[in-house]
Deep mutational scan, measured.
Amino acid sequence: SEYETMLTEIMSMGYERERVVAALRASYNNPHRAVEYLLTGIPG
């Protein structure tokens, strides 16, 4: 799925699956924002 592709691409940058899933959830599946959250911390 498109979601799995995003997940895999972000994980390939060296992040753990659960952190990527949390970041995508926080960003409403916006991959650019999710990466930003992984770099700066997930808000909330």
Score class of each variant (00 low, 15 high):
31 P>M: 14
30 N>S: 06
5 T>W: 11
12 S>E: 09
26 A>Y: 09
6 M>W: 11
24 L>N: 00
11 M>W: 04
9 E>W: 15
17 R>A: 04
30 N>R: 04
39 L>S: 08
17 R>K: 08
25 R>P: 00
23 A>F: 04
33 R>T: 11
9 E>P: 01
23 A>M: 03
7 L>Q: 01
2 E>W: 14
4 E>T: 08
39 L>P: 00
6 M>R: 04
18 E>Y: 09
44 G>E: 13
1 S>K: 12
27 S>C: 10
41 G>N: 10
8 T>I: 14
23 A>N: 00
26 A>N: 06
12 S>D: 08
8 T>K: 15
42 I>Q: 09
33 R>S: 07
29 N>S: 05
44 G>A: 13
24 L>Q: 00
27 S>P: 00
22 A>S: 07
42 I>D: 09
16 E>T: 13
38 L>P: 00
8 T>L: 15
19 R>D: 14
30 N>K: 04
12 S>P: 01
29 N>D: 07
1 S>R: 11
14 G>V: 06
2 E>N: 11
37 Y>I: 11
5 T>C: 08
28 Y>S: 14
20 V>A: 07
28 Y>F: 14
27 S>A: 15
12 S>A: 15
27 S>H: 06
17 R>P: 03
14 G>F: 05
34 A>M: 03
10 I>A: 02
29 N>T: 03
14 G>C: 05
6 M>L: 10
10 I>R: 00
7 L>I: 15
12 S>H: 08
35 V>N: 02
31 P>F: 15
28 Y>K: 15
16 E>M: 06
10 I>N: 00
7 L>N: 00
40 T>L: 13
31 P>R: 10
14 G>Q: 02
11 M>S: 04
9 E>H: 13
12 S>I: 07
22 A>Q: 11
11 M>T: 05
44 G>L: 13
4 E>R: 07
43 P>T: 10
36 E>Q: 12
30 N>T: 05
1 S>Q: 13
11 M>F: 04
37 Y>P: 00
42 I>K: 08
28 Y>H: 15
2 E>K: 11
2 E>Q: 11
18 E>M: 08
4 E>A: 08
33 R>I: 15
1 S>P: 12
30 N>P: 01
43 P>K: 08
22 A>D: 09
6 M>Q: 04
28 Y>W: 09
36 E>K: 08
25 R>M: 10
5 T>L: 14
41 G>D: 08
13 M>G: 03
12 S>Y: 06
19 R>N: 08
39 L>T: 09
9 E>T: 14
3 Y>F: 10
6 M>H: 06
31 P>S: 06
28 Y>M: 15
9 E>L: 15
11 M>Y: 03
30 N>A: 04
4 E>S: 07
6 M>P: 01
16 E>G: 07
18 E>I: 07
38 L>A: 01
20 V>L: 02
33 R>N: 07
13 M>V: 03
21 V>S: 05
35 V>E: 03
37 Y>G: 02
27 S>D: 01
11 M>R: 02
41 G>V: 10
21 V>H: 05
3 Y>R: 03
37 Y>L: 13
40 T>H: 15
43 P>R: 08
3 Y>I: 06
9 E>V: 13
32 H>F: 13
17 R>W: 07
39 L>R: 14
17 R>I: 06
7 L>A: 02
32 H>P: 06
19 R>H: 11
17 R>Y: 12
10 I>H: 01
3 Y>S: 03
17 R>S: 04
43 P>Q: 09
44 G>H: 12
18 E>C: 14
3 Y>E: 04
35 V>W: 06
33 R>L: 15
14 G>H: 02
11 M>G: 02
33 R>P: 02
21 V>C: 06
2 E>V: 11
13 M>I: 05
34 A>D: 01
3 Y>Q: 04
14 G>K: 02
25 R>D: 07
7 L>P: 00
32 H>D: 14
15 Y>I: 03
16 E>W: 06
16 E>I: 07
30 N>L: 04
2 E>G: 09
19 R>M: 14
11 M>K: 01
3 Y>T: 04
17 R>L: 09
10 I>F: 07
6 M>T: 05
32 H>N: 10
10 I>P: 00
33 R>H: 08
11 M>D: 00
23 A>D: 00
36 E>D: 07
34 A>P: 01
1 S>F: 12
7 L>W: 03
33 R>Y: 08
15 Y>P: 01
4 E>V: 09
27 S>F: 08
35 V>K: 09
42 I>C: 10
18 E>T: 08
12 S>N: 13
9 E>G: 08
30 N>M: 05
43 P>C: 12
35 V>A: 05
30 N>G: 02
21 V>G: 02
1 S>D: 13
